[in-house]
């Protein structure tokens, strides 16, 4: 086994997914199969190879620090599941 049920539960917590029992069982089997497959990469010697995070060579992209028109409060809040005045409303953070 490449991954245990307990590890899958831990990853679900990290990913903020409240999976049910059945999903955890299914994902444990499927992730195990996928991880066995991706382990083929370990056959390759990659010593001294520089990792690629971006396909096109690029320096830092800077722009002038100037104020520009932005979305505005009403537009930003238009899709909010819940709001109070000009704020997004969330459940109590500190119990």
């Amino acid at each position: 086994m490449r991954i245990t049920r307990k590890e899958v539960e831990h990853v679900a917590t990290l990913a903020r997914l409240k999976l049910d029992e059945e999903e955890i069982s299914t994902f444990t089997g499927q992730m195990d199969a996928i991880l066995s497959y991706v382990d083929t990469l370990s056959q390759l010697n990659t010593d001294g190879i520089i990792p690629t995070s971006h396909a096109v060579p690029m320096e830092n992209a800077f722009r002038p620090d100037e104020t520009r028109p932005s979305l505005g409060t009403e537009n930003a809040l238009a899709n909010a599941p819940e709001r109070t005045d000009d704020f997004f409303k969330v459940p109590k953070v500190i119990e």
């Binding site: 590890e7 990290l14 997914l17 299914t26």
Partner: peptide, 21 residues
């Protein structure tokens, strides 16, 4: 966690899980 579990389908959850791992 509940909103994400309810909102995402199985393939999306599987890929989020794999990527998080």
């Amino acid at each position: 966690s509940r909103s994400r579990d309810e909102g995402f389908g199985a393939e999306v959850k599987r890929r989020i899980m794999l990527g998080t791992y």
